[in-house]
Design a protein around this nucleic acid. Structure first.
Length: 266
DNA sequence: GCTAAATGTTGAT
DNA sequence: TCAACCTTTAGCT
């Protein structure tokens, strides 16, 4: 599930569910976060923050739990009562009304403000953050010979974009993933940025990614069925929704890239 | 019951 | 460029 929208939604939901002055139960049944969990247990969750795919839970004394879901991490919030822990449960948060179980994260660590600052410093512009600087992303893009399909996956350029948004936003703007960054025009980049912000915001709202316009869905309702949600992502060999050309795939930056060779010729 | 794949990152080669 | 790692689930047998 995790691209930037997931992280920002989690920051918001964890704050509204566990935030405030009441102490939160913190535990690590699996044990890998047990020492830190013991320190935090019973303390209030004071604030939350998200930058790209990184999530931060703020506890007293300027201590933060830094969470990165990685490829398959999950952190669902459920109504109490919490069942007995099972499986590899890295972190459980609980209060009188809810519990949230973190499984499979690539990172779950207790850090201080300096370490948090280091993480922010190596992340690029996040379309979901008010303090984002898209002009910095443009600087990187417009000076690079690297393919735009690779640059979009670089978290130090744009933070929060993953494999789905890369493929889909390039299609929506009919941009070839292979176009070098410096051959993308400022006009094209600004349109991509605005679009990414809108797509991510919609993702935060609905907790899922939908990039297709209604006229490109078999079912043209406002709510896309899962099979109709994407233009090219994981649609290898299927006909392009716009021109009918079979969707192509190959590996770029170690991930499966999907694109329409006709609509995205250049 | 087994295998592969998955919306990711890091560190070695 | 590649393998390793975090864990679950879908799709086989």
């Amino acid at each position: 599930m995790p691209e930037g929208h997931t992280t920002h939604r989690l920051a918001r939901d964890l704050r509204s569910t566990f935030g405030g002055g009441t102490g939160v139960g913190v535990s690590s049944p699996q044990g890998r976060f047990a020492a830190a969990a013991g320190e935090l247990d019973g303390q209030p969750l004071e604030r939350t923050d998200a930058h790209g795919k990184h999530l931060f839970l703020g506890f007293p004394a300027r201590r933060w739990v830094h969470v990165h879901l990685g490829l398959y991490g999950k952190f669902p919030i459920e109504p109490a009562p919490a069942p007995p822990p099972r499986g590899a449960l890295r972190l459980r948060l609980e209060n009188a009304t809810h519990y949230a179980d973190l499984r499979g994260p690539i990172a779950c660590e207790l850090i201080g403000p300096a370490e948090k600052a280091v993480i922010h410093a190596r992340l690029g512009a996040d379309p979901l953050r008010r303090d984002a600087h898209p002009e910095l992303a443009w600087m990187r893009l417009s000076r690079s010979r690297v393919a735009v399909g690779a640059l979009l996956m670089d978290q130090s350029v744009v933070a929060g974009i993953g494999n789905v948004f890369r493929a889909e936003v390039l299609f929506r703007h009919r941009l070839s993933p292979f176009r070098p960054g410096h051959q993308v025009t400022l006009e094209e980049w600004e349109a991509v940025w605005v679009d990414l912000r809108a797509l991510l915001r919609a993702g935060v709202r609905t907790k899922r990614i939908v990039t297709t316009l209604p006229e490109h869905r078999r079912r043209r309702s406002g709510t896309a069925s899962p099979e109709d949600s994407f233009y090219v992502y994981r649609r290898t060999g299927e006909p392009c929704r716009v021109c009918g050309t079979p969707v192509q795939t190959m590996t770029m930056v170690g991930r499966n890239l999907f694109w329409c060779p006709t609509c995205q010729a250049t």
